[in-house]
Structure formats: structure tokens, C-alpha cells
Amino acid sequence: MAAPLAFKQFVQAQTEFKPPLIANENAFLGDVATSTDATAPISAGFYRLEKGTPLVYEYTYDEMKIIVDGEYEISDETGQKVRATKGDVFYFPKGSKITFTTPSFGLGFFVGQRANGAA
């Protein structure tokens, strides 16, 4: 019989976790947790964008994101463009090219079908 598995808690991650700079002068992203399934890993964490250079990102994996604070302007190559605010949920399919910008700042929590640090 397999040993029981314990869950993990990341106390106050939304307010305490500071994602590292990943692009430009204003785009920050960091994984908080990654599953242990080597064949189909899932990573989750936070993406923060501050006013400044837009981030253009091409997804090499499927991702879901919920906006937890601030606001984004999100557009894609199809011409779709939305103003995203707290509580909005997005699905970004593998292969999509998304542009993120913000008039002030935005904070999103994401879950992506990828290995830790592979964003």
C-alpha cells in the first residue's frame, strides 16, 4: 500500500511571494509550486506586470490565469483585445501569441502544463 501524500500550503503567497524579473524592466514571473508528475507536469505561480514595455509572449504550453489584482490589457494575433480586471479568468492555448500591457500594474495567478521554470 502506498504511503499517504500530504498537501502543501504556501502561506500568504499572493501578497508575500515576489516573482523574479523575466523580461524588459517590468515583467515578473515565478513558479510557486510544480507537480511531481514527470510526464505531465503542472506549474503554478504569479505573473506581475508594471507600467512600461508591453510583454509579447508565445505560449509553448496551455495555461489558465486569473487576475487577482490590478488590470491588464490583453490582446492576441486574431485582433481580440480586452481589459482584464480582478476576477477575470483566461485560457491561453499552446501556440497563441499574447500581448500584455497595463496602465498601472497587474497581478495574475497562473497554472500551466509545463515543468518548473520552463516559462
Rank of each mutant, 00 (worst) to 15 (best):
D31E: 00
F10S: 12
F17S: 05
I74H: 02
P20C: 09
E71D: 05
D88H: 03
T60Y: 01
T102A: 04
S75P: 06
A44D: 01
I67E: 08
Y47V: 09
T85N: 11
G117Y: 10
T60H: 09
Y57E: 03
F17M: 07
A33P: 02
F90P: 01
A40I: 04
K8R: 04
T78C: 09
P103K: 13
A84P: 06
A13R: 08
E16F: 00
L5F: 10
V89Q: 09
A13E: 05
F17D: 10
G79D: 02
D76Y: 04
T53R: 12
D31P: 02
T60D: 13
Q14A: 00
D76I: 03
G79M: 15
E58N: 00
K51I: 07
T39N: 14
L21G: 12
F46M: 12
A6C: 03
L29A: 11
M1T: 13
P93D: 15
T99C: 06
K97F: 10
K81N: 14
F28Q: 08
S35T: 15
V68N: 09
L5N: 09
N26L: 00
R48D: 10
A2V: 07
N26C: 01
A115W: 09
T60M: 01
A115E: 07
G52D: 05
A3M: 13
V56M: 02
K18N: 11
Y47R: 08
A84W: 01
I42P: 03
Q113S: 07
E16A: 04
T85F: 06
V56E: 14
D76H: 01
S43Q: 07
G117W: 11
E16R: 12
P54S: 14
E25W: 04
T39K: 15
A33Q: 09
E50L: 03
M64K: 03
D62I: 08
V68L: 13
V89S: 08
I42M: 13
T102H: 06
D62Y: 07
F17P: 07
Q9M: 12
A2T: 11
S43H: 08
A38S: 15
